[in-house]
């Protein structure tokens, strides 16, 4: 499976944020999307998720040589600030979600099995989610995106506001999930990107560009990424 972006452009007024992007993402890899503040990472995600209309461009999914346009259900989008319907309990949310997606979920598990995956305590499962902590909400959001097994998983700074234990758990979950899908992970933290991602992609000057690791050691690779990002500032 491949996720192909063709001629994606997006401007706000005179400001061209995405300039005719052509890129192919491949299955089974986690892509680390790096860019300076305001480089357009969130805009890029929002265009893929059709939250904002792109000025131009196509998003295609290629499976076994067959291409088609992506649909809403192909995408899972995990936001920095997790949002969950707070009037429901964790269990109710999962039940509702499983109910309406019963046709599309392969190998459904029991609700408690799902809670176990993301280690949410038994006593918290029947609490209203308005009383959940940030980390618990984040886990719920991740879990929903995990169950739906989206073809494309977009993660916008998903781990930065979590405590170390939850962050580590989430990393494990993401690594387990990466087979059979394309994961694009945006972050400001270089070490996190190097730790998690198979491919580092820079978004600078409105285009995507792979940073080739070749046979650099990790420090040299880091320096290469940093200098590429610094160049951006001189434009």
């Amino acid at each position: 499976m491949k996720f192909i972006i063709e001629n994606l452009s997006k401007s706000f007024g005179d400001k061209k944020v995405l300039k005719d992007i052509n890129f192919t993402f491949e299955e089974g890899k986690i892509y680390g999307l790096l860019g300076r503040n305001g480089a357009g990472k969130t805009t890029f995600f929002n265009c893929i998720n059709s939250d904002i209309p792109a000025d131009k461009g196509k998003f295609l999914l290629e499976t076994d040589g067959q291409r088609r346009e992506i649909k809403a259900e192909d995408i899972g989008y995990v936001l920095t600030t997790p949002t969950v319907p707070e009037f429901l309990t964790g269990r109710e949310f999962l039940k509702f979600f499983l109910d309406i997606n019963e046709d599309s979920i392969k190998n459904p598990k029991s609700i408690d099995d799902y809670f176990n995956i993301i280690s949410i305590d038994t006593e918290d499962r029947d609490k209203l989610m308005k009383d959940y902590s940030h980390g618990m909400k984040n886990k719920m959001q991740m879990l929903i995106n995990l169950i739906i097994e989206p073809n494309i998983l977009l993660l916008d700074e998903p781990l930065t506001s979590l405590d170390v234990v939850v962050a580590e758990e989430m990393k494990q979950v993401l690594r387990q999930m990466k087979a059979e899908r394309i994961t694009i992970f945006s972050t400001h933290i270089l070490d996190l990107a190097l730790d998690m991602c198979d491919v580092i992609v820079l978004l600078s000057h409105g285009v995507l560009e792979i940073v080739d690791k070749q046979d650099l050691n990790s420090q040299a690779f880091k320096d290469k990424i940093l200098s590429a990002l610094r160049e951006d500032a001189h434009v």
């Binding site: 998720n49 809403a72 259900e73 192909d74 995408i75 899972g76 989008y77 936001l79 949002t83 969950v84 319907p85 707070e86 009037f87 979600f97 309406i100 997606n101 929903i144 995106n145 739906i148 989206p150």
Partner: peptide, 18 residues
Amino acid sequence: MNCDHSLLSYSFYKQPKF
């Protein structure tokens, strides 16, 4: 405030039939 704000960020929720 209490429902769609969160659920609209999930793509499953935005499917036309739903």
